[in-house]
Write a protein that binds this DNA or RNA. Structure first.
Length: 466
DNA sequence: AGCACA
């Protein structure tokens, strides 16, 4: 028996049903819109949207058959067709008597999105690019990526379902903008549903998973350059191996950046063991040593492209150094070993020697940044004769509520000259990373810039999606 | 623009 023939799919008059079939709906029509549409005619007890290959069909089920009839009758004789978002919607009785709702997690709005990246090169889309794309809609808490039969997928966690929905509506079916991808990577289309998850479990920061709410989360061994392998960066270029020693260069150095300023900024991420500053290529660079690679990675992530001072002044560019342990011979205004409190203090030439040779270390002690607004530090110190007193490690210093993460107690008091130093801009203008959440007890400086959109990255505009 | 667990 061919039961199909007894119920032709298309005909002008379907037998009435309290279920209505809608077609020609705008893309990604929501349940709310369906309910709005049906509400004037009765009680909508169930809906199903995004039906069909094009996901532009839907069903509305009324509580009562007469309500469905009322809706069909109204639009049958109305001069105005049924519309959703200005688009004409065609209605008819469904050939079924009720909506069978196999609501999967994918249909229930939640704060976590399941993203499938389609395309031959989907695997080459980095977690950083995904983060950038989804951050356009709100703070992204966590991302995990994985491979399944469906291909390369990611779970993206937002604060709430509303934010997730806005991202889903804007991005589902769209392609990642070309300029966010390396040249050799082909088009990558995003297919997005909701995930059943509400809170992802991210144990490590790695190339597969990130927790942006917790910059102190340990970096996974797999993401650390354990076997000499290189990780692939946002632009697909190979990056230097991660290191506990960072090389920071300072761009647009309108204000002098002192050793103490660097110490404070970098201490936000962990104990700074050593700092060495030197002049290179007409600018100032510094090597900053942490106890471990994980801290270096987090600090680099957070501070890259970050400006120490408001107004785009003293922008940091950070790379991993090949050094693992700096050899600081003397403590002076350009080099400091915070782990050894009593090495001799010499106020002359910097002496920085890592385990590997550092090129062009012999530089004149001149300050080459453009338009220094304050006299060089050495002159000041010599004029003053005495070093300013040590900040009390938290309160009362020129930096207000700064709580240094490192062990300042190991420092001889005469080493410190950050107390309301005339060499620095007024207290409170240092721009600190915003990722440091409350309760970490690390740092509570005024927060004036967001790391969600590093200045080094082309501003991402969701409306430029293809 | 044409009926849903894929």
């Amino acid at each position: 028996m061919a039961s199909v023939s007894s119920q032709p799919q298309f005909r002008y008059t379907q037998p009435p049903s309290k279920v209505l079939h809608l077609r020609n709906l705008p893309w990604e029509c929501t349940e709310e819109e369906l309910i709005e549409l049906g509400k004037p005619f009765g009680k909508v007890v169930n809906t199903k949207c995004n039906v069909g290959a094009n996901r532009n069909q839907a069903f509305i089920e009324f509580a009562d058959l007469n309500q469905a009839i009322a809706m069909i009758s109204y639009y049958a004789s109305s001069s105005e067709p049924a519309q959703v978002r200005g688009k004409t919607v065609y209605l008819q009785y469904s050939n079924r008597q009720e909506i069978v709702n196999n609501k999967t997690a994918a249909d229930v709005a939640g704060n976590v999105l399941l993203v499938t990246i389609e395309g031959a090169d989907a695997r080459l889309v980095s977690i950083d690019v995904l983060h950038l794309v989804f951050s356009a809609f709100g703070f992204v808490h966590k991302i995990t990526t994985f491979e399944k039969t469906a291909g390369f997928q990611a779970l993206v966690q937002f604060s709430d379902a509303e934010t997730a929905t806005s991202a889903k509506n804007a991005l589902d079916g769209r392609s990642i903008p070309r300029y966010l991808l390396p040249d050799h990577v082909g088009p990558c289309t995003l297919r997005i549903t909701y995930s059943g998850h509400t809170d992802l479990s991210v144990k490590f920061q790695s190339h597969r998973s990130r927790d942006y709410t917790n910059p102190y989360l340990p970096v996974a061994p797999s993401a650390i350059d354990g076997s000499g392998q290189f990780t692939v960066g946002l632009d697909g270029k190979k990056l230097e191996p991660e290191s506990n020693v960072l090389l920071a260069s300072i761009e647009n150095m309108q204000y002098a950046v002192t050793l103490d300023v660097l110490h404070m900024v970098f201490s936000a991420f962990g104990t700074v063991q050593k700092i060495a500053m030197f002049d290179k290529n007409g600018g100032v660079q510094a090597l900053i040593q942490y106890p471990d690679v994980a801290t270096g990675v987090v600090a680099k992530e957070a501070l890259e492209g970050h400006c120490i001072y408001d107004g785009g002044f003293c922008k940091l560019h950070i790379s991993y150094s090949r050094h693992t342990d700096l050899s600081i011979k003397v403590n002076n205004d350009r080099s400091r070993d915070y782990t050894i409190p009593n090495i001799p203090m010499v106020n002359t030439q910097p002496s920085i020697l890592g385990q590997q040779p550092v090129p062009s270390m012999t530089t004149p002690p001149s300050h080459q940044y453009t338009g220094p607004q304050y006299p060089p530090a050495e002159q000041l110190q010599q004029q003053q004769g005495v070093m300013p007193p040590q900040p009390s490690g938290g309160s009362g210093s020129g930096w207000g509520s700064t709580v240094l993460a490192g062990p300042p107690q190991s420092m001889p008091s005469q080493m410190m000259h950050s107390h309301h130093h005339p060499y620095m801009p007024p207290p409170g203008t240092v721009t600190m990373p915003s990722q440091i959440g409350p309760g970490t007890g690390m740092m509570q400086l005024p927060i004036q810039s967001s790391l969600q959109a590093p200045q080094t990255v082309t501003p991402y505009r969701p409306d430029h999606m293809q």
